[in-house]
Simulated assay, not measured.
Amino acid sequence: MNVSELLRLPWTEHDETATRAGNLREQIERLTTALTETEVRLAELAATRKVIDGLTPPSHATTPAETTTATVYQRIVTTFNDHPEKVFRVHDLHEHLGLPTDEPSINITRSRLGRLVRQGLPEHPGRGRYQKRT
């Protein structure tokens, strides 16, 4: 290797390093732009969530009616599974589950039992009587 080649090596390495630095600056600029856009969108979503939370009554946020209904259905099915030979009247089922025994509540359970019978879970051996399908 002669002296002129030896002096050219730092200049070549300088040019390559300068090119790499330029590419990295471009990447940083693209990433900075993407980060800024993402942070703006995140702020918009946070504001939207705050508005929706402000419009939603607290009772819906903690215990939706659908969850309560699903729980009652599950409790009914569990009762039939726990007592497969027992025939329940709706009123007895309410007492067993600790549900209110007023007429509107009883009628809702009759409707629920009708749906469950159509789905094939309990059977309806007689008027007002329900038991686990065998």
Results as ranks from 00 to 15, higher is better:
N2L: 04
S4M: 13
L7C: 06
W11V: 15
W11E: 15
W11D: 15
T12H: 05
T12M: 07
T12I: 13
E13H: 07
H14N: 12
H14C: 11
A18N: 05
R20M: 12
R20Y: 04
R20I: 13
R20C: 03
A21W: 04
N23R: 13
N23A: 14
L24W: 09
E26V: 10
E26M: 06
E29P: 01
R30M: 03
R30E: 07
L31D: 08
T32D: 11
T32F: 04
T33Y: 03
T33I: 08
T33D: 08
A34F: 03
A34W: 02
L35I: 07
L35Y: 09
T36R: 15
E39C: 01
V40Y: 01
V40T: 09
A43R: 03
E44A: 01
L45K: 02
L45I: 00
A46P: 01
A46G: 00
A47V: 00
A47K: 00
T48G: 01
R49G: 03
R49P: 02
V51Q: 00
I52K: 00
D53P: 01
G54L: 00
G54N: 00
G54F: 00
L55W: 02
P57C: 04
H60V: 14
H60M: 10
A61T: 12
T62L: 07
T63W: 10
T63M: 09
P64T: 11
A65I: 05
A65C: 06
A65F: 03
E66A: 14
T67K: 10
T68I: 13
T69M: 04
A70T: 11
V72F: 08
Q74T: 12
R75G: 08
R75Y: 12
I76G: 00
V77A: 10
V77W: 00
T78A: 14
T78K: 13
T79A: 15
F80H: 09
D82M: 06
P84T: 04
P84D: 09
P84F: 09
P84M: 09
E85W: 02
E85V: 06
F88K: 06
R89S: 15
H91M: 09
D92F: 02
D92H: 05
D92P: 01
L93H: 01
H94S: 15
G98F: 14
G98Q: 13
P100H: 09
P100Q: 14
T101I: 14
T101E: 13
T101P: 03
D102S: 07
P104Q: 06
S105F: 08
S105I: 05
N107G: 10
N107L: 08
N107F: 02
I108C: 04
I108F: 02
T109I: 15
R112I: 11
R112N: 08
R115L: 12
L116T: 05
L116C: 11
V117L: 07
R118F: 05
Q119A: 15
G120L: 11
G120K: 10
L121C: 04
P122F: 05
E123R: 14
H124M: 03
H124Q: 11
G126K: 09
R127L: 11
R127Y: 07
G128A: 02
R129S: 03
Y130Q: 03
Y130F: 10
Q131T: 13
R133A: 11
T134S: 15
T134Y: 07
